[in-house]
Structure formats: C-alpha cells, structure tokens
Design a protein around this nucleic acid. Structure first.
Length: 495
RNA sequence: GGUAGCGUGGCCGAGUGGCUAGGCAGAGCUCUGCAAAAGCUCCUACAGCGGUUCGAAUCCGCUCGCUACCUCCA
C-alpha cells in the first residue's frame, strides 16, 4: 500500500505532496530554544511535533539529517537600538558568565527532552559556535547590495530587497501594510526604515557578549544564525524548515530574505509551523508570564496544576491534537490524556505477549477485514500532514481489537496470520517508533519489596514455611536477600 | 488600524459536501467472591441567521463571540 505523504506548506498555504530534493535523503532544520530559561509546555510541543516528523520520515526509510539549533546568543530585548542581549541580561542578574547561563539551560532542556523521549537531532549547532559563518553571510549580503553599515552596525535593507523579491511571502504580508503598521522612532534609529533589521550590532561598552568583525566589535543579529547554520549543514537549499508559528514573522521571513539576498536561494522548500499551546484560551508564553515549565508539570508544583503529569502523559496530550491547531491546557484534558495513554500502553503490553502459533481453519473474515482497514487508516492519518490525532484514534480502534483478543472475544488464530502480524508490527511501530510513546514505570520497586515482606512476616508468624521460602526465593531471583534480624525484617541487595 | 485564523456533544479534540473519528466523564449490560480491567450498548454535537445544493458541521454571505501575528517568544 503506497499513499503519498502530504504536508501543509506555510509558504504556499497548501497541502502538498512531499518530494525531497534528493529522493532518498531529507534535510530538516528546526528552530530550537533560546537558552535563557527553563523549557515550558510550548517548547515541548514544538520539540515533540518535529520529533514525530523526524521519526516518521525515518520510518519511511529516508535518511534524515535533522538540525535543531541552540540559540545561545540571546535575541535582543525590546528595541533593537537599546537592546540588551537576553543571555547577557540574565547573566548580569545572576552574576554568572553568559556561557554558564546558556550551558545551564541547555542542560536543563536536554534533560527535559530526554524525559519526553524526544530523539536528539543529528546536529545541534550553537549560534556562538558559528560567528564566522554569520559574518561571512553578512559580507555576501553587503556585496549583493542588500545591507548597509552605519556606525559599526549592519542592517538589512528590506525595501531594496523587496524590489528584488517580495518580502513577506511566508507570512502573507505586504510591505506596504507593514510600513503603515510601524511607527518611526524619530531620529533615534540608525536604520533607514523601521522594517530593516540588524545583521550585526556594535556592542555597547557594557555589553559582555562580543566578537570581532569587519564592522565593529559586536554581536550578530536576531535572525542570522539560522540562515548561516542551516546553509552550513544542509546546504543553501534543503527540504523542511520548522518552528513555532510565532516565529513565522519576523524570524522566518527574515531568514528567507537573508538567504535570498546572500545565496540567491530560498532556503527551504517546505515550511512547517506548529501552533501554540493556550491556557484559558490565551497563548502561553514567556512574554505573558503565564507559562508552565516542564519541571513544574512533571512535579505538579504549580498553582494551575491539580496533580503531577508524567512526561509520557504530556507527550500523549500533545499528540492527541493536530500540530497546526491550538491546544488548550487544562487539568481535565491532561487527566484524560493520562488515562488514554495508559490504556494504549496496556494494550501494547498485551499485544507483545500474544503468541500466534497456527492459523485456524475458520478465518474470522469480518475482524480480519476490519483490522486491515484500521491499519490502512493509520497510514492515511499520518500521511495527511502528520495528523497524529487521527493516528491515535485509529490506534485506539486497534486497542479494542487487541483487548477483545486478550479476553478471547475474538479468537487469536481466527485472525488471518498476515493480518495479525501486520497489526502487531504497525501498532508497535506507530506507538513506539513514530509517536515515541514508551512504557513508563509508575511503580516504586522498594514499595513492592516491602509489600512482599508483609506477606513474609505474616507467613512466618503462622509458621507457614513453604510460603516463607517461596517469598525468599522470588526475591532472591531479583537480587534481593531477606534479612531476618532480631530487630525486625529487612532486606539488602545480594552481595 | 492591517493581516491570518478559530467557534464541534459535559470536557479535550479529529473531520472540510453524503459513509456515526477517538480519548475522558456519565448511564446500562456482560464478566466477576469483592473490586478493577476489558467487551458490548446508550448519550450522536457542529456559535446564530440566511443562501447554494437532491444533500452542508463541511461551500458562500452576514451577524455575534474569541484568538494570534504586526515587538522578544516554541
């Protein structure tokens, strides 16, 4: 069965059949986090959405080069002309080296991503490690006449660029509309137009993140890193560029302009944007201060949280919605996700234990046909712009079949052998390999040992030595020895 | 103000012209020492008003409500 993968391309506003530049390889670049704070639910969504896309492309046997950057030169805060680097600001507050702050939050991000079972990208480049590449790109843009230098800073000339190629294609904006929407800062700006953006900024004396360049000692502009790093690792043209919808304008728009102006090529063929997480219908974000960090979610330590939610619950919650829809946070929804996740994972466990031996002579045509249909539907769902919500729905249809087989309402061997194998393979691979859901052990091993020791104690009191020996043997199999001491019963790891 | 989008059953959330998504919650039944799990059944909605159509949640128009982007943000 061959259905083509379709994806929604922000650049065209349409669903298109995915055709990579090279039929066997895919290059994908996703905007990663700016590491000046703890990762929150929004970061998780973006990471998980593109993780699933990465996983599914691999499932389809593409060789994928996945690049997700770490932004450790912060973007400018507030107005460009008086901006202070976010990382530098945080560093001053905490009396730390900027790189120390960046490292701390990078580590925190990695820790959270690992908990969420997000695969590591193939390359995770840092902006500070690619200052030279950024300088080179600026030089190309200047040489092509699309940037100008003022007092050691370099700005991108949006109007000039717009004469060459339309600016605003990605976000559906027209330069006239943008111009009417901005107000000129009288005399304060070095920029020729309010729409222009910085490629290089001369550092003020107190600015602690600084590098030498042909123009000044300073730091690169807000959008440059992604252009420089994607070109370096994926080439001037590659297949997929992803990120949050909030990055569409101006970040991705500027990226396109920079690449066109410097390399004369539109960087990505397909632009994918995930929608926002909302909280009471309002966007969750750093700027609004209404975000919930992943650590708070995992620990339940937040005013809005009624309980802790495990990483897999969070992952499942995100996958139950399509990535281009907003997803509203709520305790009720998270609790529903928790139950749903466990239902799915219980079925997976059962399925793995089925032992199909020999096909019976009486084939259950109806169920065999239905299972095949559901398997087909799984592909239709995921191939339709990575619709994980529909895929999950189909997997739950299989859960019903799996559970019915488990309680012998459907006879295992009445399902056609090939169909059973197909179900087993697809259910497992879609759940684990594509959706990235895994079994999460929610129990406490030590509590279980203590529970067993209760029985041990009771049996001993009743002089039921058969049970006593059995319990001791079972625990020993797990490398636990029971210690009968005068002071009470205890256990230890077997030495 | 400009641009884009959204409004689906108690909750979350798919669906873009006919073919009851799915999860959670609720009700009943089966199973069962009790309970749970599981299965089956039920609850069958598309903001409002008009229009197009044999047929609309789905297309068009209007009205109401909400949101996002235009400034850093996943």
């Amino acid at each position: 069965m061959q259905i083509k993968l379709k994806l929604h391309n922000t650049l065209t506003g349409k669903k298109e059949i995915f055709e990579p530049l090279n039929p066997t390889h895919v290059g994908m670049y996703v905007c990663g986090p700016t590491v000046y704070g703890e990762a929150h639910l929004g970061h998780a969504r973006s990471a998980i959405v593109f993780d699933v896309i990465f996983r599914y492309l691999q499932f389809l046997d593409y060789k994928v080069r996945y690049v997700r950057n770490i932004t450790d030169v912060g973007h400018l805060e507030q107005d460009a002309d008086e901006g202070e680097d976010k990382i530098a600001k945080k560093a001053r507050l905490q009396q730390l080296e900027p790189m120390e702050v960046a490292q701390h939050y990078t580590d925190a991000y990695h820790r959270d991503m690992e908990l969420l079972n997000v695969k590591k990208p193939g390359i995770e480049p840092r902006a500070t490690g690619h200052i030279l590449e950024q300088i080179e790109l600026i030089e190309k843009i200047i040489n092509n006449g699309f940037a100008y230098e003022v007092n050691g800073s370099v700005y991108f000339d949006v109007e000039k660029y717009n004469e060459h190629k339309p600016y605003g294609l990605l976000s559906g904006r027209k330069i006239e509309d943008l111009q009417s929407g901005t107000r000129e800062l009288a005399g304060q700006s070095e920029k020729r137009s309010a729409l222009d953006f910085a490629l290089w900024k001369k550092a003020a004396p107190e600015h602690i993140m600084r590098w030498r360049s042909p123009w000044s000692v300073g730091f690169p502009g807000w959008h440059l890193e992604c252009s420089a790093m994607s070109a370096k690792y994926l080439g001037e043209q590659f297949d997929i560029h992803g990120g949050g919808m909030d990055l569409m304008f101006p970040h991705h728009e500027c990226e396109i302009a920079q690449c066109e102006a410097g390399n004369n090529a539109s960087p990505a063929r397909y632009w994918l944007h995930n929608n926002m997480i909302t909280i009471n219908g309002q966007k969750m974000g750093k700027s609004l201060g209404n975000f919930i960090t992943l650590q708070e979610l995992f620990s339940g330590n937040h005013q809005l949280l009624e309980q802790a939610y495990s990483p897999m619950t969070v992952r499942f919650f995100i996958l139950q919605a399509h990535y281009r829809s907003t997803l509203d946070f709520g305790n009720e929804a998270l609790q529903a996700a928790q139950k749903g996740y466990k239902k799915l994972i219980n079925a997976l466990r059962i399925l793995k234990e089925f032992n199909y031996e020999e096909q019976s002579e009486n084939i259950d045509e109806k169920n065999t046909q239905q299972i095949n249909q559901i398997c087909d539907n799984c592909f239709h769902a995921i191939n339709d712009d990575f619709n994980t919500a529909r895929l999950v729905a189909q997997l739950f249809n299989l859960v019903k079949k799996i559970n019915s087989i488990h309680v012998h309402q459907i006879a295992l061997h009445s399902i056609e052998n090939a169909t059973f194998n197909r179900m087993k393979e697809l259910f497992t691979r879609f759940t684990e390999d594509v959706l990235g859901l895994k079994e999460e052990e929610s129990f406490d091993g030590k509590a279980l040992i203590n529970a067993l020791l209760e029985f041990y104690k009771e049996a001993k009191a009743e002089k039921d030595y058969e049970t006593v020996d059995a319990v001791r043997a079972k625990l020993k199999q797990q490398g636990i020895v029971v210690k009968d001491m005068k002071t009470g019963i205890d256990w230890a790891y077997e030495e």
